[in-house]
Design a protein around this nucleic acid. Structure first.
Length: 441
DNA sequence: GCATGATCATGC
DNA sequence: GCATGATCATGC
Protein backbone atom coordinates (compact mmCIF):
# COMPACT_ATOMS: atom_id res chain seq x y z
CA UNK A 1 0.00 0.00 0.00
CA UNK A 2 1.40 3.38 -0.99
CA UNK A 3 2.32 6.12 1.46
CA UNK A 4 -0.35 8.70 2.13
CA UNK A 5 0.44 12.17 0.88
CA UNK A 6 -0.73 13.75 4.08
CA UNK A 7 -0.52 13.25 7.81
CA UNK A 8 -3.67 11.68 9.22
CA UNK A 9 -2.95 13.11 12.64
CA UNK A 10 -2.77 16.70 11.47
CA UNK A 11 -5.87 18.75 10.58
CA UNK A 12 -3.66 21.25 8.76
CA UNK A 13 -2.08 18.54 6.67
CA UNK A 14 -5.45 17.04 5.79
CA UNK A 15 -6.68 20.51 4.89
CA UNK A 16 -3.64 21.18 2.70
CA UNK A 17 -4.22 17.93 0.90
CA UNK A 18 -7.90 18.78 0.41
CA UNK A 19 -6.83 21.94 -1.42
CA UNK A 20 -5.93 19.70 -4.35
CA UNK A 21 -9.65 19.27 -4.91
CA UNK A 22 -10.22 22.95 -5.55
CA UNK A 23 -11.86 23.53 -8.89
CA UNK A 24 -11.66 19.82 -9.69
CA UNK A 25 -14.05 16.92 -9.55
CA UNK A 26 -13.27 13.57 -7.97
CA UNK A 27 -12.85 12.01 -11.40
CA UNK A 28 -9.87 14.27 -12.12
CA UNK A 29 -7.93 13.66 -8.94
CA UNK A 30 -8.51 10.01 -8.15
CA UNK A 31 -8.50 6.71 -9.94
CA UNK A 32 -12.03 5.48 -9.79
CA UNK A 33 -13.04 1.91 -10.55
CA UNK A 34 -15.71 1.30 -13.20
CA UNK A 35 -18.14 0.34 -10.48
CA UNK A 36 -18.14 3.99 -9.50
CA UNK A 37 -17.83 5.69 -12.87
CA UNK A 38 -20.56 3.58 -14.41
CA UNK A 39 -23.15 4.86 -12.03
CA UNK A 40 -25.27 7.55 -13.52
CA UNK A 41 -25.39 10.07 -10.73
CA UNK A 42 -26.41 8.63 -7.42
CA UNK A 43 -24.12 7.67 -4.59
CA UNK A 44 -22.54 9.30 -1.62
CA UNK A 45 -19.83 11.66 -2.79
CA UNK A 46 -18.54 12.00 0.76
CA UNK A 47 -17.65 8.33 1.09
CA UNK A 48 -16.19 8.27 -2.41
CA UNK A 49 -13.92 11.20 -1.61
CA UNK A 50 -12.85 9.57 1.62
CA UNK A 51 -12.10 6.24 -0.02
CA UNK A 52 -10.56 7.24 -3.34
CA UNK A 53 -9.09 10.67 -2.71
CA UNK A 54 -8.00 10.46 0.91
CA UNK A 55 -7.59 6.68 0.70
CA UNK A 56 -8.85 6.60 4.22
CA UNK A 57 -11.04 4.08 5.96
CA UNK A 58 -12.49 5.29 9.25
CA UNK A 59 -12.01 2.78 12.03
CA UNK A 60 -15.50 3.26 13.32
CA UNK A 61 -18.51 5.39 12.70
CA UNK A 62 -18.72 6.62 16.24
CA UNK A 63 -16.03 9.29 16.31
CA UNK A 64 -14.78 11.70 13.65
CA UNK A 65 -13.64 10.29 10.31
CA UNK A 66 -10.04 11.25 10.98
CA UNK A 67 -9.96 10.05 14.56
CA UNK A 68 -6.41 11.09 15.40
CA UNK A 69 -6.90 14.61 14.05
CA UNK A 70 -10.35 14.82 15.63
CA UNK A 71 -11.62 15.93 12.25
CA UNK A 72 -14.88 15.00 10.58
CA UNK A 73 -15.03 15.16 6.80
CA UNK A 74 -18.17 16.42 5.05
CA UNK A 75 -19.09 17.18 1.49
CA UNK A 76 -22.08 19.35 0.71
CA UNK A 77 -23.74 20.67 -2.41
CA UNK A 78 -24.03 24.32 -3.32
CA UNK A 79 -25.86 26.08 -6.11
CA UNK A 80 -25.57 29.58 -7.51
CA UNK A 81 -28.48 31.93 -7.15
CA UNK A 82 -29.51 34.63 -9.60
CA UNK A 83 -27.03 37.13 -8.31
CA UNK A 84 -24.23 34.61 -8.71
CA UNK A 85 -23.49 33.88 -5.09
CA UNK A 86 -23.27 30.38 -3.69
CA UNK A 87 -26.10 29.02 -1.56
CA UNK A 88 -26.46 25.70 0.20
CA UNK A 89 -28.40 23.16 -1.83
CA UNK A 90 -29.79 21.74 1.40
CA UNK A 91 -29.06 20.98 5.03
CA UNK A 92 -25.77 19.33 5.91
CA UNK A 93 -26.41 15.94 7.49
CA UNK A 94 -23.92 15.28 10.27
CA UNK A 95 -24.60 12.07 12.16
CA UNK A 96 -27.44 9.69 12.86
CA UNK A 97 -29.39 10.12 16.06
CA UNK A 98 -29.47 7.07 18.25
CA UNK A 99 -32.57 7.59 20.37
CA UNK A 100 -31.51 5.00 22.94
CA UNK A 101 -28.13 6.50 23.75
CA UNK A 102 -29.10 10.16 23.22
CA UNK A 103 -31.57 9.96 26.08
CA UNK A 104 -28.80 9.32 28.59
CA UNK A 105 -26.08 11.53 27.11
CA UNK A 106 -24.72 14.80 28.44
CA UNK A 107 -24.02 17.63 26.01
CA UNK A 108 -20.34 18.09 26.85
CA UNK A 109 -19.62 14.40 26.37
CA UNK A 110 -22.19 13.85 23.65
CA UNK A 111 -21.47 11.71 20.65
CA UNK A 112 -22.54 14.63 18.50
CA UNK A 113 -19.84 16.92 19.88
CA UNK A 114 -17.23 14.18 19.74
CA UNK A 115 -17.89 13.60 16.10
CA UNK A 116 -18.80 17.01 14.76
CA UNK A 117 -17.14 19.81 16.72
CA UNK A 118 -14.34 20.09 14.17
CA UNK A 119 -15.15 19.69 10.50
CA UNK A 120 -13.52 19.82 7.13
CA UNK A 121 -16.27 20.80 4.73
CA UNK A 122 -15.89 20.42 0.97
CA UNK A 123 -18.35 22.26 -1.23
CA UNK A 124 -19.29 20.92 -4.62
CA UNK A 125 -21.47 22.45 -7.28
CA UNK A 126 -24.73 20.53 -7.32
CA UNK A 127 -26.28 19.58 -10.61
CA UNK A 128 -28.70 16.70 -10.74
CA UNK A 129 -27.76 15.94 -14.34
CA UNK A 130 -24.11 15.41 -13.42
CA UNK A 131 -22.91 12.15 -11.81
CA UNK A 132 -21.50 12.71 -8.34
CA UNK A 133 -17.91 11.95 -9.31
CA UNK A 134 -18.06 14.67 -11.95
CA UNK A 135 -19.43 17.36 -9.69
CA UNK A 136 -16.89 20.12 -9.32
CA UNK A 137 -15.55 21.32 -5.97
CA UNK A 138 -16.02 25.06 -5.71
CA UNK A 139 -14.99 27.46 -2.96
CA UNK A 140 -12.04 26.52 -0.78
CA UNK A 141 -12.37 23.66 1.64
CA UNK A 142 -13.46 24.98 5.00
CA UNK A 143 -11.73 23.91 8.19
CA UNK A 144 -14.39 24.71 10.71
CA UNK A 145 -14.54 24.49 14.46
CA UNK A 146 -18.03 25.38 15.65
CA UNK A 147 -17.59 28.74 17.41
CA UNK A 148 -18.59 29.13 21.03
CA UNK A 149 -21.50 31.45 20.34
CA UNK A 150 -22.99 28.93 17.93
CA UNK A 151 -22.39 26.06 20.33
CA UNK A 152 -24.61 27.84 22.82
CA UNK A 153 -27.48 27.74 20.35
CA UNK A 154 -26.67 24.19 19.31
CA UNK A 155 -26.62 22.95 22.85
CA UNK A 156 -30.10 24.35 23.34
CA UNK A 157 -31.19 22.67 20.11
CA UNK A 158 -29.61 19.41 21.21
CA UNK A 159 -31.23 19.57 24.64
CA UNK A 160 -34.60 20.14 23.07
CA UNK A 161 -34.23 17.14 20.79
CA UNK A 162 -33.05 15.01 23.70
CA UNK A 163 -35.96 16.16 25.87
CA UNK A 164 -38.46 15.08 23.25
CA UNK A 165 -36.86 11.66 23.16
CA UNK A 166 -36.92 11.45 26.97
CA UNK A 167 -40.58 12.39 26.91
CA UNK A 168 -41.29 9.55 24.52
CA UNK A 169 -41.95 11.97 21.68
CA UNK A 170 -39.21 11.04 19.25
CA UNK A 171 -41.92 10.54 16.65
CA UNK A 172 -42.95 14.17 17.07
CA UNK A 173 -39.53 15.62 16.34
CA UNK A 174 -39.48 18.34 13.73
CA UNK A 175 -36.80 20.44 12.12
CA UNK A 176 -38.80 23.49 13.01
CA UNK A 177 -38.14 22.80 16.70
CA UNK A 178 -34.65 24.16 16.58
CA UNK A 179 -32.44 26.95 15.30
CA UNK A 180 -29.06 25.78 13.99
CA UNK A 181 -29.08 22.06 14.64
CA UNK A 182 -31.95 20.19 13.06
CA UNK A 183 -33.21 16.67 13.59
CA UNK A 184 -33.81 15.85 9.95
CA UNK A 185 -35.40 12.70 8.64
CA UNK A 186 -32.87 10.25 7.40
CA UNK A 187 -33.75 6.87 6.09
CA UNK A 188 -34.48 5.02 2.94
CA UNK A 189 -37.19 7.57 2.22
CA UNK A 190 -40.32 7.24 0.19
CA UNK A 191 -43.09 4.85 1.16
CA UNK A 192 -41.10 2.42 3.24
CA UNK A 193 -39.51 5.01 5.45
CA UNK A 194 -37.30 3.41 8.05
CA UNK A 195 -38.70 3.37 11.53
CA UNK A 196 -36.87 2.94 14.79
CA UNK A 197 -37.65 2.02 18.32
CA UNK A 198 -37.54 4.81 20.88
CA UNK A 199 -36.76 4.17 24.55
CA UNK A 200 -39.71 5.85 26.28
CA UNK A 201 -42.61 5.03 24.03
CA UNK A 202 -43.93 2.17 22.00
CA UNK A 203 -44.64 4.41 19.06
CA UNK A 204 -42.05 3.80 16.36
CA UNK A 205 -40.23 6.95 15.25
CA UNK A 206 -38.71 7.93 11.94
CA UNK A 207 -34.95 7.69 11.74
CA UNK A 208 -33.37 11.06 12.18
CA UNK A 209 -29.96 12.65 11.95
CA UNK A 210 -28.42 15.78 13.40
CA UNK A 211 -27.84 18.32 10.68
CA UNK A 212 -26.81 21.91 10.18
CA UNK A 213 -29.83 23.68 8.86
CA UNK A 214 -29.65 25.07 5.38
CA UNK A 215 -29.61 28.63 6.70
CA UNK A 216 -26.70 27.76 8.96
CA UNK A 217 -24.77 26.31 6.04
CA UNK A 218 -25.43 29.54 4.18
CA UNK A 219 -24.04 31.43 7.11
CA UNK A 220 -20.93 29.26 6.91
CA UNK A 221 -20.59 29.93 3.20
CA UNK A 222 -20.91 33.67 3.70
CA UNK A 223 -18.33 33.74 6.47
CA UNK A 224 -16.08 31.58 4.37
CA UNK A 225 -16.30 33.88 1.37
CA UNK A 226 -15.53 36.92 3.45
CA UNK A 227 -12.34 35.20 4.51
CA UNK A 228 -11.38 34.39 0.95
CA UNK A 229 -12.13 37.80 -0.42
CA UNK A 230 -10.05 39.48 2.20
CA UNK A 231 -6.90 37.51 2.52
CA UNK A 232 -6.94 34.56 0.21
CA UNK A 233 -7.12 32.40 3.27
CA UNK A 234 -9.88 30.11 3.98
CA UNK A 235 -11.31 30.37 7.42
CA UNK A 236 -12.83 32.81 9.76
CA UNK A 237 -10.19 32.24 12.36
CA UNK A 238 -7.54 33.66 10.05
CA UNK A 239 -9.80 36.57 9.25
CA UNK A 240 -10.17 37.39 12.90
CA UNK A 241 -6.46 37.03 13.46
CA UNK A 242 -5.70 39.43 10.63
CA UNK A 243 -8.04 42.02 12.02
CA UNK A 244 -6.72 41.57 15.52
CA UNK A 245 -3.18 42.05 14.32
CA UNK A 246 -4.17 45.20 12.53
CA UNK A 247 -5.65 46.78 15.64
CA UNK A 248 -3.38 45.29 18.27
CA UNK A 249 -0.74 48.06 18.19
CA UNK A 250 -3.37 50.68 18.93
CA UNK A 251 -5.21 49.00 21.78
CA UNK A 252 -4.81 51.07 24.91
CA UNK A 253 -3.64 54.18 23.06
CA UNK A 254 -5.59 57.37 23.47
CA UNK A 255 -7.64 58.79 20.64
CA UNK A 256 -5.26 61.72 20.29
CA UNK A 257 -2.24 59.43 20.19
CA UNK A 258 -3.87 57.34 17.48
CA UNK A 259 -4.83 60.38 15.43
CA UNK A 260 -1.24 61.60 15.77
CA UNK A 261 0.15 58.30 14.47
CA UNK A 262 -2.32 58.17 11.60
CA UNK A 263 -1.93 61.89 10.80
CA UNK A 264 -5.65 62.26 10.99
CA UNK A 265 -6.73 65.34 12.87
CA UNK A 266 -10.16 66.46 13.81
CA UNK A 267 -11.19 69.28 11.54
CA UNK A 268 -13.77 70.69 13.88
CA UNK A 269 -14.40 70.15 17.52
CA UNK A 270 -17.59 68.28 16.85
CA UNK A 271 -16.63 66.12 13.96
CA UNK A 272 -19.17 63.31 13.88
CA UNK A 273 -17.73 60.05 12.69
CA UNK A 274 -14.16 60.86 13.66
CA UNK A 275 -13.73 57.64 15.62
CA UNK A 276 -15.05 55.71 12.70
CA UNK A 277 -12.51 57.40 10.41
CA UNK A 278 -9.75 56.32 12.76
CA UNK A 279 -11.06 52.76 12.85
CA UNK A 280 -11.28 52.67 9.08
CA UNK A 281 -7.83 54.05 8.56
CA UNK A 282 -6.26 51.44 10.83
CA UNK A 283 -8.08 48.69 8.99
CA UNK A 284 -7.32 49.88 5.49
CA UNK A 285 -3.72 50.89 5.89
CA UNK A 286 -1.48 49.22 3.40
CA UNK A 287 -4.04 46.64 2.43
CA UNK A 288 -6.85 47.35 0.07
CA UNK A 289 -8.22 43.84 0.36
CA UNK A 290 -9.39 44.35 3.90
CA UNK A 291 -11.41 47.33 2.82
CA UNK A 292 -12.96 45.22 0.11
CA UNK A 293 -13.93 42.81 2.76
CA UNK A 294 -15.85 45.30 4.81
CA UNK A 295 -17.75 46.22 1.71
CA UNK A 296 -18.46 42.54 1.25
CA UNK A 297 -20.76 42.63 4.22
CA UNK A 298 -18.98 43.13 7.49
CA UNK A 299 -20.55 45.81 9.56
CA UNK A 300 -17.87 47.95 11.14
CA UNK A 301 -19.32 49.86 14.07
CA UNK A 302 -17.68 52.07 16.64
CA UNK A 303 -18.89 52.05 20.23
CA UNK A 304 -17.80 54.71 22.69
CA UNK A 305 -18.09 53.84 26.35
CA UNK A 306 -18.22 56.27 29.21
CA UNK A 307 -15.99 55.73 32.20
CA UNK A 308 -18.72 53.65 33.79
CA UNK A 309 -18.70 51.32 30.80
CA UNK A 310 -22.06 52.45 29.45
CA UNK A 311 -22.23 53.35 25.75
CA UNK A 312 -22.71 57.03 25.07
CA UNK A 313 -25.20 56.28 22.34
CA UNK A 314 -27.46 53.70 20.81
CA UNK A 315 -26.43 52.25 17.45
CA UNK A 316 -28.14 53.52 14.34
CA UNK A 317 -29.01 51.71 11.13
CA UNK A 318 -30.12 52.92 7.71
CA UNK A 319 -33.31 54.89 7.48
CA UNK A 320 -36.55 53.38 6.27
CA UNK A 321 -39.51 54.83 4.46
CA UNK A 322 -42.83 54.35 6.20
CA UNK A 323 -44.57 53.96 2.89
CA UNK A 324 -42.23 51.11 1.95
CA UNK A 325 -42.15 49.22 5.22
CA UNK A 326 -45.93 48.76 5.19
CA UNK A 327 -45.62 46.52 2.13
CA UNK A 328 -42.45 44.75 3.18
CA UNK A 329 -41.64 41.45 4.85
CA UNK A 330 -39.12 41.26 7.68
CA UNK A 331 -36.67 39.12 5.77
CA UNK A 332 -36.64 41.60 2.88
CA UNK A 333 -35.95 44.56 5.13
CA UNK A 334 -32.65 46.40 5.37
CA UNK A 335 -32.66 46.09 9.14
CA UNK A 336 -32.92 42.29 8.91
CA UNK A 337 -30.14 42.16 6.36
CA UNK A 338 -27.87 44.27 8.57
CA UNK A 339 -28.55 42.29 11.71
CA UNK A 340 -27.64 39.06 9.97
CA UNK A 341 -24.20 40.42 9.20
CA UNK A 342 -21.05 39.87 11.09
CA UNK A 343 -20.14 42.97 13.08
CA UNK A 344 -16.67 44.24 13.72
CA UNK A 345 -17.00 46.27 16.90
CA UNK A 346 -14.37 48.90 17.60
CA UNK A 347 -14.79 49.87 21.22
CA UNK A 348 -13.40 53.04 22.79
CA UNK A 349 -13.59 53.75 26.48
CA UNK A 350 -12.94 56.73 28.70
CA UNK A 351 -10.45 55.93 31.46
CA UNK A 352 -10.36 57.23 35.03
CA UNK A 353 -8.29 60.23 33.92
CA UNK A 354 -11.00 61.13 31.46
CA UNK A 355 -8.88 60.07 28.50
CA UNK A 356 -10.62 58.14 25.76
CA UNK A 357 -8.70 55.11 24.56
CA UNK A 358 -9.11 52.26 22.07
CA UNK A 359 -10.40 49.59 24.39
CA UNK A 360 -11.36 46.48 22.50
CA UNK A 361 -11.84 45.13 18.99
CA UNK A 362 -13.99 42.10 18.36
CA UNK A 363 -16.21 40.32 15.92
CA UNK A 364 -19.76 39.76 16.96
CA UNK A 365 -22.95 38.56 15.46
CA UNK A 366 -26.40 38.90 16.82
CA UNK A 367 -27.82 35.83 18.58
CA UNK A 368 -30.95 34.35 17.11
CA UNK A 369 -33.26 35.21 19.96
CA UNK A 370 -32.24 38.85 19.84
CA UNK A 371 -32.96 38.93 16.14
CA UNK A 372 -36.40 37.57 16.95
CA UNK A 373 -36.89 40.47 19.35
CA UNK A 374 -35.64 42.93 16.72
CA UNK A 375 -38.14 41.39 14.34
CA UNK A 376 -40.91 42.00 16.85
CA UNK A 377 -39.96 45.68 17.00
CA UNK A 378 -39.82 45.82 13.22
CA UNK A 379 -43.25 44.18 12.84
CA UNK A 380 -44.65 46.60 15.39
CA UNK A 381 -43.15 49.50 13.45
CA UNK A 382 -44.70 48.18 10.26
CA UNK A 383 -48.07 47.93 11.97
CA UNK A 384 -47.90 51.42 13.42
CA UNK A 385 -46.77 52.84 10.07
CA UNK A 386 -50.17 51.94 8.68
CA UNK A 387 -52.01 53.43 11.65
CA UNK A 388 -50.04 56.30 13.14
CA UNK A 389 -46.54 57.10 11.94
CA UNK A 390 -46.03 59.54 14.78
CA UNK A 391 -45.91 56.77 17.34
CA UNK A 392 -43.08 54.26 16.88
CA UNK A 393 -41.59 51.72 19.33
CA UNK A 394 -39.59 53.60 21.92
CA UNK A 395 -36.52 52.39 23.70
CA UNK A 396 -38.57 51.50 26.74
CA UNK A 397 -40.67 49.08 24.68
CA UNK A 398 -37.90 46.60 23.94
CA UNK A 399 -34.64 45.40 25.43
CA UNK A 400 -33.04 45.27 22.00
CA UNK A 401 -34.21 47.86 19.50
CA UNK A 402 -36.20 51.03 19.01
CA UNK A 403 -37.11 53.60 16.36
CA UNK A 404 -35.98 57.22 16.32
CA UNK A 405 -35.65 60.08 13.87
CA UNK A 406 -32.75 60.32 11.50
CA UNK A 407 -32.60 63.24 9.18
CA UNK A 408 -30.25 65.84 7.80
CA UNK A 409 -32.23 68.47 9.60
CA UNK A 410 -35.78 69.37 10.50
CA UNK A 411 -36.69 69.66 6.82
CA UNK A 412 -35.51 66.19 5.86
CA UNK A 413 -38.95 64.66 5.73
CA UNK A 414 -40.89 61.94 4.00
CA UNK A 415 -44.54 61.39 3.18
CA UNK A 416 -46.23 58.94 5.55
CA UNK A 417 -49.07 56.57 4.61
CA UNK A 418 -51.31 58.94 6.57
CA UNK A 419 -50.45 61.66 4.09
CA UNK A 420 -48.42 64.01 6.26
CA UNK A 421 -44.76 64.97 6.04
CA UNK A 422 -42.56 63.66 8.85
CA UNK A 423 -38.86 63.60 9.71
CA UNK A 424 -37.27 60.38 8.46
CA UNK A 425 -36.82 57.53 10.91
CA UNK A 426 -34.46 54.63 11.41
CA UNK A 427 -33.96 51.57 13.61
CA UNK A 428 -31.52 51.62 16.51
CA UNK A 429 -30.05 48.98 18.76
CA UNK A 430 -30.55 50.14 22.33
CA UNK A 431 -27.48 51.43 24.15
CA UNK A 432 -28.35 49.10 27.05
CA UNK A 433 -28.35 46.15 24.69
CA UNK A 434 -24.98 47.22 23.26
CA UNK A 435 -23.67 47.43 26.82
CA UNK A 436 -24.61 43.81 27.42
CA UNK A 437 -23.05 42.77 24.13
CA UNK A 438 -19.78 44.47 24.99
CA UNK A 439 -19.68 42.71 28.34
CA UNK A 440 -19.84 39.32 26.67
CA UNK A 441 -17.09 39.98 24.12
C1' DG B 1 -27.51 59.77 33.49
C1' DC B 2 -30.91 58.47 30.51
C1' DA B 3 -34.64 58.63 26.86
C1' DT B 4 -35.98 60.98 23.19
C1' DG B 5 -35.76 64.36 19.62
C1' DA B 6 -32.83 66.71 16.35
C1' DT B 7 -29.03 67.28 13.40
C1' DC B 8 -23.94 67.11 11.78
C1' DA B 9 -20.00 65.75 8.63
C1' DT B 10 -18.69 62.64 5.29
C1' DG B 11 -18.36 60.05 1.05
C1' DC B 12 -20.26 58.68 -3.03
C1' DG C 1 -27.96 65.90 -3.37
C1' DC C 2 -28.56 62.34 -0.48
C1' DA C 3 -27.98 58.33 2.55
C1' DT C 4 -25.36 57.07 6.31
C1' DG C 5 -23.08 56.54 10.77
C1' DA C 6 -22.66 59.06 14.44
C1' DT C 7 -23.25 62.69 17.73
C1' DC C 8 -25.42 66.72 19.89
C1' DA C 9 -29.30 68.92 22.66
C1' DT C 10 -32.95 68.97 25.72
C1' DG C 11 -35.77 67.87 29.56
C1' DC C 12 -36.64 65.15 33.30
Amino acid sequence: MSELEYDKKSPESIYEFALKLRGKCLDEVANLPPSVTNKRNRGDLGSLVEKYFFKHQPESNRGPDFAEAGLELKTTGVVRNKSGSYRAKERLVLTMINFESLASEKWVSSSFLKKCAFLLILFYQFDKEVPVHRRRFVLDPLLFRIPQEDLVIMERDWQLIRKKVQDGKAHELSEGDTFYLGACRKGSGGEKESLQRQPFSNVPAKSRAFSFKQSYVNKLIDGHLEGEVSLGVSNEISMEMATRERYAPYIGLSVSEISEILSLQKKTKNQKGFHKMLANKILFMGNQTLSELTKAGIELKTVRLRENGRPRESMSFPGFKTREIVNQEWEDSTFFERLERKFLLIVFKVDSNNVERLFKVAYWNMPYEDRVEAQRVWEETKKRSTIDSRNFPKKSESTVAHVRPKGRDGDDKELTPQGNMQVKQCFWLNSGYIARVIETL
